[in-house]
Design a protein around this nucleic acid. Structure first.
Ligand code: NAD
Ligand code: NAD
Lengths: 215, 215
DNA sequence: GCGACTTTGTTCCTGCGTTCACAAGCGGTT
DNA sequence: AACCGCTTGTGAACGCAGGAACAAAGTCGC
């Protein structure tokens, strides 16, 4: 017995599916009901053939000669990505960057809701940000347990990021997004992704310098 | 005539070199003068063999049986990445996220300096942030020309990101880091990288959901 | 009803990135 | 001076991602 559709979707494909989802939402708001792979690929900034290959991981979901139904495809991608229902998130480290994230409305419209904002500094605690109030770290475990938050975001200084990671894992958070410039180690069963803005800038600096050399 | 050391370094390697650079700086501050690939790999969160392969793109820079000289390796990576001298950057869209970036000290210590902060809203203009004053967009071209800024960062709403990108390119910026959730198209010779935080969260959501299914 | 056109889904292929494994080289020791 | 242990640098194998080309399938026009 063969498995006609493998359960594993490449991570690169998953990232692009999220982009397609956003483009489809924009199209739906614009009143479009159907879209071809070429149009959607241009809206997402990718190659049409690659887009079709990505969608093929979800099984057939288009009509040949016509294209894809915007609403159907949107729902299907949302279900695969696991964002059909809103996800609860907690945010630790409400400084410059953390405050910006907590205030950002774009997460809520994509199904991510911050249900807890945490900081260690007494001056921060009690401060209202983005419809929430900053809490002390002691309440982390309780909030995670009661809300079922599965995603934690770390925007603390690098020195304490590992300890915050440990506390999040103990509290029951399954996925962690880390903005601190240190590699984190987490227990098995906890996924960690990092966003490293300095690295992004340095890659840009390298590409710019390299272009000068080759020119 | 062969080219014993190709000029092109894989982009994935460049990104990791930036991480090694940071780890080496930390080691240097800690007084270490020499380090092995195993230690450095652990500090950077990567595989030792991969680290050695990455470094091999720079030519031989270690001593067999001993390891790498921290200072020498640090300087060499910095030169390859093009961050031995500070790079001037401009930032457009001084809202929640833009303010956090402008205030962040970590970029300066890695050789990136914001020499211009720009916004379209009259209320923002003149506001002091991170040692700079927010300017109107009209001054963008002048500032880029006079400071030689080669990197532009976009933290405006998505609707205007493309027009801001166009203005940056016209002004002479060679590399762009885009935080707005839209794919940008730039003229040839201008590199664009995007940071998409919603996508990061959605990938995490997918991984978390997938782990439940496979468990 | 039938043919032509459009668009999807898949297959092949090429190139890249990652990992493992080993030979080469250097320092310290006897 | 020769040997031994340690670490680097590189070669090979593997798996994955991306792109182009092609066949299947559905619609529209006649
Ligand atoms: N601000 C940026 O633009 C930017 C860019 C790239 C990376 N980062 C990284 O993001 C992280 C946060 O940056 P920031 O500029 O917001 O710093 P920040 O100093 O403004 O904020 C850090 C916050 O974390 C809190 N904190 C400290 N220790 C804590 C602990 N043990 N538990 C919980 N909270 C704690 C502090 O009270 C503070 O509110 C840093 O690691 C930084 O390197 C920031
Ligand atoms: N804040 C976040 O945490 C976050 C997270 C992910 C993505 N983003 C993206 O980053 C961007 C900025 O987010 P934000 O929360 O800072 O928004 P914001 O509304 O707080 O800030 C946007 C700023 O851009 C300025 N602006 C508007 N039009 C402009 C123009 N034509 N030229 C120059 N400046 C202009 C506005 O005056 C404002 O100050 C958005 O595209 C958003 O989707 C933000």
């Amino acid at each position: 017995m063969i498995q006609p559709r493998p359960r594993t979707i490449p991570e690169a494909t998953v990232a692009r599916l999220a982009v397609y989802l956003r483009a489809l939402t924009t199209l739906a708001e614009g009143g479009r009901s159907s879209v071809s792979s070429g149009e959607l690929a241009e809206a997402a900034g990718v190659n049409p053939a690659g887009l079709r290959k990505d969608l093929s991981h979800l099984g057939p979901c288009g009509v040949r000669g016509v294209g894809y139904d915007v609403q159907t495809l949107r729902d299907r991608i949302a279900r695969v990505l696991g964002v059909e229902h809103a996800r609860a998130c907690v945010l630790v480290g409400i400084g410059n960057l953390g405050s910006a994230l907590a205030d950002y409305a774009g997460f809520g419209t994509r199904g991510f809701e911050f249900v807890g904002l945490f900081d260690a500094a007494p001056a921060r605690i009690g401060q209202p940000i983005g419809g929430q109030t900053v809490r002390p770290l002691d309440e982390l475990a309780d909030v995670v347990a009661s809300t079922g938050a599965s995603i934690g975001v770390i925007t603390t200084p690098a020195e304490v990021a590992q300890s915050v990671c440990d506390r999040l894992a103990v509290a029951g958070v399954r996925s962690i997004l880390n903005f601190a410039p240190v590699p984190l180690v987490a227990p098995d069963g906890v996924d960690v992704r990092k966003v490293d803005l300095s690295v992004e800038l340095q890659v840009l600096a390298f590409l710019g310098q390299q272009r000068l050399v080759s020119a």
